[in-house]
């Protein structure tokens, strides 16, 4: 019964930054137990929406409901895993020390550090200083920290940036297997090609929702054969509409 409610619902969400709206009247829903891709060009409001969902963003209007509670509720802090766009880990600590600390904060069981490093394939580097890792490895440490304590919802801001195709493939498989165990995932990317890995896609453009579709549905709707073309078509249509309105 509980799980039939969506993981995230926003209603008429508005976010200002400076004088302009980053997000205008955005109403979206993220179903449970699926990998939902949040796609769109850079500057389209993806990170802002994610920050609103994890309760880190001041909002100007509307509501954000996460796992049945208002976004930012203290009860949600144990139930959401969040990866910011920058690898938010301590570079002057080893991977293990980073994960131990975040694990303690979230109240994860003792064995969790070993589990999450295995999931992101960093077990051999466990004792290495985070500052000595490559950009892609650092991103994975950040992801591992979000997996601690097995959260019900994962909000991942561009987790596959800077990874080679093999690792990217592995991570998307990890996301799919997490979804199968009932975890809800919202994963942002500006690489349109990653759309086909998702169960569902939310396409943002200038703070507005352009599409909420399955990957197949998106291709069908736009009469295109690949994700890039589908997005270009949708964005062209949106610009055309805006132009006609003005």
């Amino acid at each position: 019964m509980m799980n039939s409610t969506p993981a995230v619902v926003t209603a008429e969400l508005r976010v200002h930054r400076g004088k302009s709206d980053v997000i205008t009247d955005l109403s979206v829903s993220v179903p449970r137990g699926q990998v939902v891709g949040l796609l769109g060009p850079s500057g389209s409001g993806k990170s802002t929406l994610m920050r609103a969902i994890v309760g880190a963003q001041k909002i100007a209007g509307g509501t954000v409901t996460v796992l049945g509670a208002p976004a930012g509720s203290p009860s949600l802090r144990r139930r959401i895993g969040y990866v910011t766009q920058a690898p938010s880990v301590y570079e002057d600590l080893t991977i293990e020390q980073n994960l131990r600390y975040f694990g303690r904060v979230i109240g994860a069981p003792a064995g969790d550090v070993a589990r999450v490093v295995a999931e992101v394939d960093l077990a051999p580097q466990l004792k290495q200083l985070a500052g000595s890792l490559s950009g892609g490895q650092l991103n994975r440490v950040s992801l591992a920290a979000a997996l601690l304590g097995s959260p019900e919802l994962l909000v991942l801001d561009e987790p596959t940036v800077g990874l080679d195709p093999v690792l990217r493939h592995d991570l998307w498989q990890l996301f799919a297997s997490l979804a199968q165990t009932g975890v809800s995932l919202l994963v942002s990317s500006h690489v349109m090609d990653e759309a086909r890995r998702c169960d569902r896609i939310l396409l943002l453009h200038e703070g507005k929702l352009l599409a909420d579709e399955t990957p197949a549905g998106l291709l069908q709707q736009t009469n295109t054969l690949d994700a890039d073309d589908a997005f270009l078509t949708l964005i062209a249509r949106a610009n055309h509409r805006d132009g006609a309105a003005a």
Binding site: R51, V54, G55, A56, P74, R77, R78, I80, Y82, T84, Q85, A86, P87, S88, V89, Y90, E91, F102, V105, I106, G107, A145
Partner: peptide, 13 residues
């Protein structure tokens, strides 16, 4: 600036 504070502030700290 590194984002670790933002992460911690979304956690039960």
């Amino acid at each position: 600036r590194s984002g670790t504070l933002e992460r911690l502030m979304t956690m039960p700290l």
